[in-house]
Amino acid sequence: MESKTVKISELLDDYTDNEFCIEGETEVQNEEIKDIVLKNVKKRGKPAKKIIIAAVAAAAALTAVMGAAAQRIIFTGLDGTDHGYYIDVNGNEYKYHHSSNTNMEAVVLEENGRLYLTADGGKTDITDLIDEETPYIYKCHDQPADVDNAENYIVIGGTPNEYGYDSYTLFDGEWGMSYAVRTIGPNDRLEMYDWEINGMKQLQSEGRLVGLDIEQIMEFSVNR
């Protein structure tokens, strides 16, 4: 004999609520939703992937002010683990902080060929939700310890062999960005990945990153 469990909540998978449903009370942009679904399913070659914004309870933000990236300059910090990037555009200097790889596991972890979001202290498999072009976006709930009135979004993308995250933080009315990328094998890539650019654009379309000059960043990115 096989063992069986019967849960009420699962039995109700066969139920249709025609009595208490709030269908008539909800404001839903059905046409917009339809358009997005149809656009996704008509894409050739790959299953539809969603750029998902979800709330998590941990902050992993490292903050800096970033302007347009003409190029990224790498140096090793005095402590030997952190790398700071100074980006010089039109005579302006911006400090851009790069987390050390040992901190990466606090945000994203690679294990047995799978990628896990760990920013909330849990472990969520996001491998199938991201790729070279498609990011996964999280909104952090907790503020960074030393920053007041902050918002923090993490954009994760890539594959188990080449993945990373961007962290965008709003503090004192200005947006800052930091990032970390890990690759299997050597990588001296300086240009932004497509998932980074798409994540940035998605956040902007959501009304975030106000004041961050994304067009200028795009113009100077060697990905263009």
């Binding site: 609520d17 449903c21 709030i22 269908e23 009370e25 909800t26 404001e27 839903v28 942009q29 059905n30 917009e32 939703i33 997005i36 679904v37 996704n40 399913v41 299953p47 539809a48 969603k50 998902i52 914004i53 979800a54």
Partner: peptide, 27 residues
């Protein structure tokens, strides 16, 4: 609308998430 309303009921009206998840259901 039905799918959205089920989601809205469970997610307590988080409209952004309801829209995303409605899309997910049909995809």
């Amino acid at each position: 609308r039905y799918v959205y309303s089920v989601l809205a009921r469970i997610l307590r009206g988080r409209s952004c998430d309801c829209e995303e998840l409605t899309q997910d259901v049909f995809v």
